[in-house]
């Protein structure tokens, strides 16, 4: 066990966990931040995606120690009131079916739009192929990303 400092959604936490414990389990079982979901555990499905310094990373294979000192954003921190352009677009296009993977989808999309506010279809393909959805919400995710891009340009804001 070792004491680690983590900055999650703008709040500093100090936790005592094995340094190799994946960030996913530090979030879920130690900090009770259950918005980040477990699905494959081998970094292939993207359900557990969090943003590390704004970059989508798979928290299920990322040692907690390696996230210490970084800016960690989880789905709970994007905008807790749901007002982020991507969150609004996700609701307005009614993307979710079961909803389990959507936290990972939304964070991945928000990172895409933050660096590329008007992505092409192939940009969207490249970014979003990282996250699996068993319900098949892919066509709506594409529409929602385009809608979020419009919201952002209409409002002149950042993702």
């Amino acid at each position: 066990m070792s004491e680690l400092s983590l900055t999650i959604n703008g709040t500093d936490h100090t936790i005592d966990v094995p340094p190799d414990m994946p960030l996913l389990w530090a979030l879920r079982d130690v900090l009770n931040l259950t918005g980040t979901k477990y699905s494959c555990g081998i970094g292939t499905c993207g359900t557990c995606t969090v943003l590390i310094n704004g970059v989508p990373m798979r928290s299920c294979v990322m040692p907690t120690a390696s996230a210490s000192g970084a800016t960690i954003s989880t789905i709970e921190g994007l905008d807790p009131s749901g007002g982020h352009a991507v969150q609004r677009a996700w609701n307005d296009e009614d993307v979710p079916q079961c909803g389990y993977c959507q936290g990972g989808q939304i964070l991945t999309a928000s990172a895409l739009l933050a660096r590329n506010p008007d992505p092409s279809d192939s940009d969207i393909d490249a970014a979003m192929s990282a996250v699996l959805c068993r319900c098949g919400t892919y066509p709506r995710i594409r529409k929602a990303i385009k809608r979020a891009s419009r919201y952002m340009s209409d409002e002149g804001g950042d993702a």
């Binding site: 259950t34 918005g35 789905i75 709970e76 996700w90 979710p96």
Partner: peptide, 16 residues
């Protein structure tokens, strides 16, 4: 009509 649980899903609230 968008799903009633969408606000909780897009903000990562406990549901599952």
């Amino acid at each position: 009509v968008p799903g009633v649980d969408n606000p909780m899903i897009v903000t990562g609230q406990p549901l599952f």
